[in-house]
C-alpha cells in the first residue's frame, strides 16, 4: 500500500484536489482510502463517502494535532491495510504552519491556494519546504501573472518540488496529480521511520489545561519574546 501525506492551510482545496485525483485512480480499479486529520470538526468524510471512498476521521480535540497525527499514523496505516487498500491519502490542515506531517520515504504533498497572497509561500514553513509536490489551487480566478509569481515564490523556498496547478472545481490538472500519485513509493516501512521535520518542543502548563495568565501559572518549556525598550 502507498501512503501519501497531503497538508495545506484550511480551505486551500485539499479535499477538492484529493477527490478529483482519486476519481481517476478509483476508475482505474485502484482501491483508495482517505485519512482525515482535523482539530475540532470535520465534515469532509461525507464528501469522500459520496464518492464511494472509505474514510477514517481523526479529531485531535485537546491534543496538539501534529503530535496526535504522528502517534496515530501507524494504526491508521494498519486500518488501510486491513481494508485491502492500494493507496491511502492522509489529509491534514496546516495548523500553526510550524509543523509538517510529511514522513521520509513517503510521497508528500502540500496544497496552497493562489488567493492566499504572494507572501504565503514564505510563511508556510516545513509542510511546504519538505514537500515533493506542491499543488496550487484557485488559479482560475487570479491572473496568469500572479500564478507565475506565486510559483516563483514557492520555488524560492522549495527548489526540488514539482509545482502543479489544479482547479479544484473543474478538476483540471487533477489528472496529472493522479499520475504522480500512482508512482508514489510503495510499502515503505512506517515503524522506525522519521518525520521530515521535528514538531515543536513545548510542554508547558498551558499544554496541560492551564488557562490563567501570569508568571505564577507558567511552568515547563516557556519562551519569552525579546522586546526592545
Amino acid at each position: 500500500m502507498k501512503l501519501i501525506t497531503v497538508a495545506g492551510p484550511p480551505s486551500s482545496g485539499k479535499t477538492a484536489v484529493i477527490t478529483k485525483a482519486l476519481r481517476f485512480l478509483h476508475s482505474e480499479g485502484l482501491r483508495v482510502g482517505v485519512l482525515k486529520f482535523d482539530c475540532l470538526v470535520s465534515r469532509d468524510a461525507e464528501v469522500f463517502q459520496a464518492e464511494g471512498i472509505p474514510v477514517l476521521t481523526g479529531l485531535s480535540g485537546n491534543f496538539c494535532p501534529d503530535h496526535f497525527f504522528i502517534t496515530n499514523i501507524e494504526d491508521c496505516f494498519a486500518w488501510g491495510s486491513r481494508h485491502g487498500l492500494d493507496l491511502l491519502i492522509s489529509e491534514s490542515a496546516g495548523l500553526c504552519n510550524r509543523c509538517a506531517p510529511h514522513i521520509r520515504g513517503f510521497y508528500a504533498v502540500c496544497v496552497l491556494d493562489n488567493l492566499s497572497g504572494v507572501e504565503t509561500p514564505r510563511k508556510i514553513g516545513p509542510m511546504l519546504k519538505t514537500a515533493d509536490l506542491v499543488v496550487v489551487t484557485k488559479g482560475d480566478i487570479v491572473s496568469q501573472a500572479e500564478r507565475e509569481v506565486f510559483a516563483f515564490r514557492i520555488r524560492q523556498v522549495n527548489a526540488k518540488a514539482r509545482i502543479l496547478f489544479v482547479n479544484g472545481i473543474t478538476g483540471q490538472g487533477a489528472w496529472e496529480v493522479s499520475r504522480l500519485w500512482k508512482k508514489a513509493p510503495e510499502d515503505a516501512p512506517l515503524t522506525g521511520g522519521r518525520l521530515r521535520f521535528s514538531v515543536p518542543s513545548a510542554v508547558c502548563s498551558y499544554c496541560f489545561g492551564q488557562t490563567k495568565i501570569g508568571e505564577d501559572f507558567q511552568s515547563g518549556t516557556i519562551r519569552k519574546m525579546t522586546i526592545p525598550d
Binding site: 488567493l115 497572497g117 482560475d140 480566478i141 487570479v142 491572473s143 500572479e146
Partner: peptide
C-alpha cells in the same frame, strides 16, 4: 479568462 482578477 473572464473570471480572472488581480488579487494582489
Amino acid at each position: 479568462s473572464q473570471n480572472m482578477n488581480f488579487v494582489m
